[in-house]
Amino acid sequence: MSDVKFILMLCKTCVKGKPQTSPKKMVNSAVSEEETRIQDKESKEESILAMLGIIGTILNLIVIIFVYIYTTL
């Protein structure tokens, strides 16, 4: 545990002397709006596919139950 504290102290002393720069980049707003539209479209598609998967699983369970009942009678 003391080794971690020592490394953190060394990192703090190294960073103090250097000027801080922000990691943000200048981005064209038209590009970011287009990207958000694409991400929204993809998230809608993923939610539709997830719903279809759930519905398919439920239908498979119903079929298994009916087949089990049919074979036991």
Results as ranks from 00 to 15, higher is better:
Leu73Cys: 03
Ile69Gly: 00
Glu34Val: 02
Lys16Ala: 09
Leu61Thr: 10
Val67Trp: 01
Tyr68Asn: 06
Lys12Val: 04
Ser32Met: 14
Ile55Phe: 03
Asp3Tyr: 08
Ile7Leu: 15
Ser22Gly: 03
Leu73Asp: 03
Glu33Pro: 00
Val63Trp: 04
Leu49Cys: 10
Ile7Asp: 06
Lys18Tyr: 09
Leu59Arg: 05
Ile58Tyr: 04
Lys12Leu: 08
Ile65Arg: 04
Ala30Phe: 07
Cys14Lys: 10
Val67Lys: 04
Glu42Asn: 12
Ser43Phe: 10
Cys11Asn: 02
Ile48Arg: 09
Tyr68Gly: 13
Met1Phe: 02
Val31Ile: 14
Ile69Glu: 04
Leu10Asp: 14
Val31Cys: 00
Ile69Ser: 05
Ser22Gln: 03
Glu46Asp: 09
Met1Arg: 07
Thr36Gly: 00
Ser22Glu: 06
Asp40Phe: 10
Met26Ile: 14
Ser22Leu: 05
Val4Lys: 07
Thr13Trp: 03
Gly53Ser: 04
Asn60Met: 15
Ile62His: 02
Ile58Asn: 01
Ala50Lys: 14
Asn60Glu: 04
Pro23Glu: 07
Thr72Cys: 03
Met1Ile: 05
Leu8Thr: 07
Ser22Trp: 03
Cys11Ile: 08
Leu73Glu: 09
Leu52Ala: 11
Cys11Lys: 04
Thr71Ala: 11
Asp40Glu: 15
Glu42Val: 09
Met1Gly: 12
Ile55Gly: 01
Ser29Met: 12
Val63His: 01
Met51Cys: 07
Asn60Gln: 10
Ile38Arg: 10
Phe6Asp: 13
Cys14Ala: 14
Leu59Asn: 02
Val4Met: 05
Ile7Cys: 02
Ala30Trp: 04
Leu52Pro: 01
Met1Asn: 05
Ile38Glu: 08
Ile58Cys: 03
Lys41Val: 08
Ile54Lys: 14
Thr71Asn: 06
Asn60Asp: 10
Leu49Glu: 15
Lys12Cys: 06
Phe66Met: 05
Ser22Met: 05
Tyr68Pro: 00
Lys18Val: 12
